[in-house]
Design a protein around this nucleic acid. Structure first.
Length: 724
DNA sequence: TACTATTTAATTTTT
DNA sequence: TTAAATAGTA
């Protein structure tokens, strides 16, 4: 067999990993070191050269996108479709197992997956039901608690209250939440993993069967595995399995959602005889960028240690811009983007990164002003939209009457005269008889309520039953279409005023198209409807649709992980924002922020701008901040300060001198030699009037209302204003 | 039940 | 500043 196609274009370390013998291997893959390439080539190697059947491989990723990408790459490498190859997310694979072995897993055959929003609603309702008169119990915190326990593989009975009444109550919430889910046949994301783990743990024969089948376990982004995922992998690997885990401890940025980078450190202990390969040669960035990244991350302790290098050139220096405020920062970024675009570069090759979503607003405004098309990553995904979830709730109820979560969501949407009082009666009946809302509704309607409320409920129950009957036997998309019509949802949103209602209707129509295009996996023995509902829960869809226009990319540093761009801006690099205030005092938190910074820097291929503002409006308050400590961790010789930072002399003579901008006795305007209301002329913006002045020296700026372009804030020293 | 005023809090996100 | 949740009003 000619192995050249698989091995050419691989460097020594990559080749070592790809061709490794069948023993546990940990690949530490630095940013841009060809991680995905190693993973896909390894799979190709196993299949083509080692003769491993595709059925013997299990490849696990964290996102659906990564899974789809991996499958595509393998297929193009092997020039054939690879059916029977299990590639998927932890959740997707766990789901597949649970569908196959629902009985052993103790689940109803048509169990439904709920997303975090559904989960939160259930918890809120639970808290309300228990009628606590104080608001000590924050739903989000309970949710966090429950998921954290599940991520660690813990059931309520494993938990000790430590004689802490607070904790005791949290455990009680967990317990009751779980009862609600079990009664309704509902499985949340963490539960998928936990159940899948318990399924194998408690069914040794079943486990053995899968162990025999999956000898080779390939895991991407291994540093992001949480405890239950790792436990699941270890179970499956057993003594004979061959783990091939790829990750980077320096890019672990998800501890707050359960990821345990320690698994990387533990690997060699858990898998005796394991070896480690480090990929340090980088094919993405210039040496300058890599040197900066290496220098920053070197400040972290407890790392395995690695140093990125490249055969490429030094490249441009990293440019640091000290903006006066966040608007100045945005103007600067947009100016550079304009130039980039005008020079014929693709806008999509430029990314603006920030620490928190709130920062995008100012940037977006500036981009709109400059007429530069842009795209913000993140935001509501398709299947998370309200109207979509409403429609899905009807479908779920049709498939599974006991789904209380869906019942509550749509029982009075559109309004059909089932108010809070009626609902309360049903809830208390359901609670007293430990039954679902559906059954409670039937019981309560017949003997407890006034005629009006009772007939409203009966009408609702009949509606669902009728829709179930009418849709049975129809094609999936016809079912969906029928339900959004017959439920009255379409009419309900049609009445909603403004553009929002229109969008909602369009989205509902889009849902029908999605159903039309949906192809269920024939291997799964589910009804098309159930398959579609699971799909909707596991793959929430794209955040933004029109990805194809050439747009500047705006996103958080977190969402930038795994991506690369020739031109990158890292904005808001200030202590308090990045590293974030909430992580700054905790050494572990600070190290994670630093890893995030490392991720950000290594996104850049050629040009990296780092910007920070001395003054920033945050939560409606102007505040001052130092440049991020991460900037100072970059060696000075790699950096070029765009505008030499003038010594900011804040007078300390006055009592209020520390935090506030100097007020003094003479007006700032007079100090600057301009007066409020003065008419000025700007080369580009034309004529205007000075509205406001602030700052001093090189940082002095004026707010000018221009006749044609509106209000702008300009740095006086650079604006070249003509006084008139 | 729907609309409006008031209060409150404010990272990061995939499944 | 602002978005979301809650409380109060028509």
């Amino acid at each position: 067999m000619d192995v050249t196609p698989i091995l050419e274009h691989l460097n020594e370390a990559q080749r070592e990993a790809v061709t490794a013998s069948a023993a546990p291997l940990l690949v530490i893959a630095g940013a841009g070191s060809g991680k995905t390439r190693v993973l896909t080539h390894r799979i190709a190697w196993l299949i083509d050269v080692e003769g491993v059947s595709p059925q013997g491989l299990l490849a696990v990723t964290f996102t659906n996108k990564a899974a789809a990408e991996m499958r595509g790459r393998i297929e193009s490498l092997l020039h054939m479709p690879v059916n029977h190859l299990w590639i998927g997310t932890f959740h997707g694979l766990a789901h597949r197992l649970l569908r196959r072995h629902w009985q052993e897993a103790g689940l109803p055959q048509n169990f439904q997956i709920i997303d975090s929003d559904d989960q939160l609603r259930i918890i809120k309702r639970l808290i309300k039901n228990l009628e606590f008169d104080d608001d000590r119990w924050v739903p989000r915190e309970i949710q966090y608690f429950i998921n954290a326990q599940k991520d660690e593989g813990l059931r309520p009975q494993h938990l000790d209250d430590d004689n802490d009444p607070n904790r005791r109550q949290q455990i009680a919430f967990y317990q009751q939440y779980q009862e609600i889910c079990d009664r309704g046949g509902l499985v949340d994301f963490a539960e998928l993993l936990l159940r899948a783990h318990e399924l194998w743990r408690d069914n040794p024969e079943l486990l053995a069967q899968y162990q025999r089948r999956f000898r080779h376990l390939l895991v991407d982004e291994f540093q992001d595995t949480n405890s239950i995922q790792y436990a699941w992998l270890r179970l499956l690997a057993g003594r004979e399995g061959v783990p091939f885990f790829v990750g980077d401890d320096d890019q672990s940025i998800y501890r707050w959602r359960g990821a345990r980078v320690e698994h990387i450190h533990q690997f060699q202990r858990d898998f005796p005889g394991a070896s480690v390969v480090k990929l340090e040669q980088n094919y993405r960035s210039t040496a300058t960028i890599l040197d900066a990244a290496n220098a920053v991350i070197a400040n972290n302790s407890s790392r395995l240690g690695k140093n990125l290098w490249t055969e490429g050139g030094q490249g441009e220096p990293i440019r640091v811009y000290s903006a006066y405020n966040e608007r100045d920062e945005a103007e600067f970024v947009i100016g550079k983007l304009r130039t980039w675009s005008d020079q014929g570069n693709a806008r999509a090759d430029a990314a603006v990164l920030y620490r928190s979503n709130a920062q995008s607003r100012v940037l977006e405004e500036a981009l709109i002003n400059a007429r530069l098309p842009y795209r913000v990553y993140g935001g509501l995904r398709f299947f998370e939209r309200q109207e979509i979830k409403d429609a899905l709730a009807y479908l779920r109820l049709i498939s599974h009457r006991d789904d209380d979560s869906s019942f509550e969501r749509i029982v009075n949407k559109p309004t059909r005269g089932i108010g809070a009082r009626t609902l309360e009666a049903m809830r208390s009946y359901a609670r007293a008889n430990s039954c679902s809302m559906w059954r409670a509704a039937g019981a309560v309607a017949s003997d407890e309520l006034s005629g009006r409320a009772s007939s409203a409920i009966v009408a609702f129950l009949n509606l669902i039953e009728r829709m179930a009957k009418e849709t049975s036997g129809l094609d999936l998309h016809e079912q969906v279409d029928h339900v959004i019509q017959a439920s009255g949802l379409i009419d309900f949103f049609r009445k909603e005023k403004g553009e929002r209602g229109e969008t909602r209707i369009e989205n509902l129509e889009e849902l029908v198209s999605a159903a039309r295009g949906f192809q269920p996996d024939p291997a799964e023995e589910m009804s098309p409807l159930d398959a579609f509902l699971s799909h909707a829960a596991l793959e929430a869809g794209e955040g933004q649709a029109d990805a194809w226009e050439d747009c500047v990319q705006l996103m958080t540093m977190h969402s930038a992980k795994g991506l690369e761009f020739p031109l990158v801006f890292m904005c808001g690099m200030e202590d308090g924002l990045f590293p974030h205030q909430r992580s700054i005092s905790d050494p572990n938190g600070l190290e994670e922020e630093r890893r995030l910074c490392y991720v950000g820097i290594t996104r850049a291929k050629e040009t990296l701008y780092i910007t920070h503002a001395e003054q920033r409006r945050l939560h409606g308050m102007d505040s001052f901040a130092q440049a991020s400590r991460f900037i100072t961790e970059i060696p000075a010789e790699l950096v070029e300060e765009i505008r030499p930072r003038v010594q900011v002399s804040r007078p300390v003579s006055t009592a209020r001198g520390t935090g506030r901008r100097s007020g003094g006795s003479i007006s700032p305007a007079a100090e600057l030699g301009v007066r409020l209301g003065q008419r000025v002329r700007h080369v580009k913006f034309g004529d205007g009037v000075i509205l406001n002045c602030s700052g001093q020296g090189a940082h002095a700026q004026v707010e000018v209302n221009f006749e044609t372009v509106g209000t702008k804030i300009l740095v006086l020293a650079y604006a070249n204003l003509d006084l008139m």
